[in-house]
Nucleic acid binder design. Structure first.
Lengths: 169, 169
DNA sequence: CTCTTTTAAATCGTGCGCAAGGTAATCGTC
DNA sequence: GACGATTACCTTGCGCACGATTTAAAAGAG
């Protein structure tokens, strides 16, 4: 009489007994995907009040993180760094341009590519953002080792999963 | 001459030297938030082709996971389980109702609450979903221990962070 | 040089996610 | 039983995400 798969100490067997081998729990709280989804949204809403003061949304903040590292970047490079679609990036960048934080201009020697550069205002915002990572890290309440290990695992997971989806694309 | 904070072996010090104590890296790839955000989206797009065959989106799948566990649920309970707003849930449930997978009806003894129940079609969909967790788990490429540990950490992170945001609400 | 293919970006439509504001039912207090 | 407060849900508006389609520029083939 099989119960649930190993490693998922749940009550699924009570309501849906005799799960065949090779199948895992369908309980919401057993899913890694839900843990990720919930954590990602929780962290985003932790950022929200902080970023509100800078007049930024969370994805806009990520764009600025990328631009503070390396300015005058082709949109294609932002697409790679953030793993976002042009359909997401183009309007996002337009809003940041409208806010006066960056400029978009076609590259002279290749009119296909658009280069994104920070304005003075965009550069200046970095000073106000410096305290953010420490505040967020504090709220997460993980010790250094757990923080690093989890971040490394998430990156590996992303890499594995991305390779898989692109193999089918 | 301070370099970057401990645990972040990055090149930030080169471009922005002398980061004061108590401040952490602003490099995109050093952020836990970005690792989470990227992983969550990557996993969602891993689900997409699978869920397409069931005619579901990813949040719709999560709702069904919750309903397969416990049917005839008040929307309030789904809100708690999925940690989603009514503004997200109401239209989402309406689309699932339009697809014939569930029914929504007011509770007789308290006309404020709406109870959600699966149709035969919604219940039947569970059979076709059984193979999903194993397929996803395989693509993630984490061994059992790392999987469990990361899931546990993410849940704790979510709990910590949620408590923080609610304390200010 | 012409024609095809590829590439970088933009556009459009759909479905979340969430804040803000609104409504109706119920509860609590008198 | 009147009435202000609370509760459960709905609606609206905005900003992502992402697939699908389109456009224009550049690269490559013959």
């Amino acid at each position: 009489m099989d119960t649930e798969a190993a490693g998922t100490p749940s009550a699924e067997a009570d309501t849906h007994p005799a799960v065949p081998d090779g199948e895992l729990s369908l309980l919401l709280d057993d899913q890694m995907c839900f843990a990720l989804y919930a954590a990602s949204r929780a962290v985003t809403s932790l950022y929200r009040p902080i970023l509100d003061e800078l007049g930024l949304t969370y994805p806009q903040y990520l764009v600025l993180l990328a631009l503070w590292e390396r300015d005058q970047v082709p949109v294609k490079e932002l697409r790679r760094a953030l793993q976002l679609d042009y359909g997401t990036l183009t309007p996002l960048l337009k809003r940041l341009e409208a806010a006066g934080l960056l400029r978009r201009e076609r590259q002279a020697d290749d009119e296909r590519t658009v280069r994104v550069g920070l304005t003075e205002q965009g550069i200046a915002l970095r000073r106000r953002a410096r305290a953010i990572p420490a505040a967020i890290g504090d709220a997460m309440g993980l010790d250094d080792e757990e923080f690093e290990r989890t971040r490394a695992t998430l990156r590996r997971l992303t890499r594995n999963v991305t390779a898989r989806t692109e193999a089918r694309g």
